[in-house]
Amino acid sequence: MEQTTIITADDHPLLLKGLNDFLLERGYNIIGSGKNGREAYNLIINENPNIAILDIQMPFMSGIEIAQKCKTNCPDTKVILITLHKEREIYEQAKELNIFGYILKEFALEEIENCLEQVIQGEHYFSPNIGKKLQSHGIDTELFSKLTPSEKKILKLIGEDKTNKEIASLLFISYRTVEKHRSNIINKLQLEHKTNSLLIWAKQNYSSFT
């Protein structure tokens, strides 16, 4: 693990921190992190890491665009894409680029270690969860309609990367009230009680409810 150099990139600070913390706790050697596609690509060029774990959709340059450039300019760097998107077109594009790993964000922390183990050995890892998720997706309007106006406001702010403390300040309510609303939203939307599950849902469906 120590010998394998890794860079990570995601434009969502909370998701990037969660991934980095998870990997560092398990002894992986992260040598840099980017907050957008340009930073990620520059890190790859300058550091020539063994593995680059990239969000697909980032400002300046997408994970797909970085992977295309890496084929020519950094052929030794194995790219793993982590994405919110479930469209078949993007999935097929990733396969055509000979991406080494492809994981949905909602399963990232469950699967990343297994993915890394296989990629380190030179094998490809495409999440087994992807097949059943490949579809044009939208929000479940029946479940969404169960949310109160206050819960919808909080959901919008979560989708904008606001923390519980920031939401409490913006809406003039207590931190504990925000936590209670978050719990209610998770239950009403029938989401799994996993770290960042609500944040991921809010980011993925933001354009559908704002």
Rank of each mutant, 00 (worst) to 15 (best):
L198Y: 00
S62Q: 06
E142N: 11
K35T: 06
E106Q: 14
I64A: 03
A40H: 00
K156Y: 13
E111D: 15
Q204D: 10
K152T: 04
T77Q: 13
H193Y: 13
K152N: 07
K35E: 05
Q204S: 09
I53C: 04
N42A: 07
N205H: 14
Y91K: 08
I80F: 04
K194Y: 09
I200R: 07
Y175L: 12
I45Y: 04
Y28N: 00
L104Q: 00
H124A: 12
L109A: 03
L23S: 02
I90S: 10
F107L: 07
F209T: 07
I6C: 03
K69W: 02
N98R: 04
I51C: 05
L147T: 00
I7Q: 02
G159M: 13
P13Q: 07
F107C: 12
I44S: 01
G27K: 11
N42I: 06
E179V: 06
L116E: 04
E2I: 04
T195G: 02
H137M: 09
L109G: 01
I30M: 08
D10K: 04
E2S: 09
G122Y: 03
L43F: 14
T177L: 08
K86L: 06
R176K: 09
A202K: 00
M58Y: 02
S62G: 07
R38L: 09
N129W: 15
Y125G: 12
H124V: 11
A94F: 10
F60Q: 13
D55V: 05
K69S: 07
D161W: 08
I112D: 11
K194H: 11
T163F: 08
T210C: 10
K152D: 05
H12T: 11
H12E: 10
I186R: 06
Y28I: 04
R182S: 01
